[in-house]
């Protein structure tokens, strides 16, 4: 019998501990597959953040360093500068990278730091129980915006990948989603490209993945995917937001 699917060698045997319907598992599997396919599992060091994405350190078979909240890219910079020939990636939630860690994200992009960041955007702080994030949509209810996010007092949702795409050192920035098999495939392509950009030493690469949080959104898994598609995808610019000239040639 022909085996058509197996667990990536990039993943450990530790079962995912995410809530039902959470898409973190899909995204991590895609990264693991890409690392396996590029044959760089043994030379890759991941950096985990604080939040649900922090569990990533247990699930990958590559080396991992746990960073303080928001600091993953600074930590990744330190690792990369010490070991320039290793592959370094950070796996961060939207709150981690786009709120408390904003300065590091902006400056790894400005320096063209040769690391890859995966930003998982579910428009909310998941682990702490559903508080407002910089990416929370207008009028969206969270535990710290119980009457809906009012832009007048709470600010507008931030399209963070778009912001980073405008910085010269960012060689590759893509915004993708895992709401459908087709988009999952696109996500994997983007992740692969991002790592290739790093391998080629072309600069900073970022893949932002729109993701779900059924528990804190108060929706079931399939409703969550629908909500993501109908509410988040129109707000956040999708596709490859930045492909530098060198990256085009890859």
């Amino acid at each position: 019998m022909n085996k058509v699917f197996s667990r990536s060698k990039g993943l450990t045997d530790v079962p995912f501990t995410f809530c039902p319907g959470c898409t973190h598992g899909i995204i991590m599997r895609l990264i693991a597959e890409v690392l396996e396919e590029l044959d760089i599992l043994e030379e890759t060091i991941g950096v985990s953040p604080v939040g649900c994405a922090g569990f990533s350190q247990d699930f990958f078979t590559c080396d991992f360093v746990g960073a303080a909240h928001g600091r993953a890219q600074a930590v990744g910079t330190g690792i990369k500068r010490a070991l320039p020939h290793r592959t370094v990636f950070t796996y961060q939630g939207d709150g981690d990278i786009a709120a408390i860690g904003t300065q590091h994200a902006v400056h790894v992009a400005a320096r063209g730091e040769k690391i890859t960041s995966i930003m998982v955007n579910n428009a909310i702080y998941g682990m702490t129980g559903g508080q407002m994030a910089p990416t929370t949509l207008t009028n969206m209810k969270t535990s710290t915006s119980p009457f809906g996010r009012d832009p007048q007092t709470m600010g507008f949702p931030m399209d963070f990948p778009k912001l980073l795409a405008g910085i010269p050192g960012a060689a590759y920035v893509a915004s993708v989603s895992v709401d459908s098999p087709k988009n999952i495939k696109k996500t994997k392509d983007a992740i692969r490209k991002a790592f290739k950009v790093q391998q080629a030493g072309l600069g900073f690469s970022l893949v932002s993945v729109l993701s779900t949080c059924p528990t804190n959104w108060g929706l079931n898994p399939s409703e969550s995917l629908k909500w993501l598609r109908e509410n988040m995808m129109p707000i956040y610019e999708m596709g490859e937001l930045k492909v530098s000239e060198e990256v085009e040639k890859l």
């Binding site: 960073a67 600091r71 600074a74 930590v75 910079t77 690792i79 010490a82």
Partner: peptide
């Protein structure tokens, strides 16, 4: 390598990352 970081927080966390590799930092 000398890197002027975005701020002190960045600098110490870069030290943290580099120290994880066993380099003197």
């Amino acid at each position: 390598t000398v890197l002027q970081a975005e701020d002190e927080i960045g600098a110490i966390n870069m030290c943290y990352g580099a120290a994880c590799t066993g380099s003197r930092v």
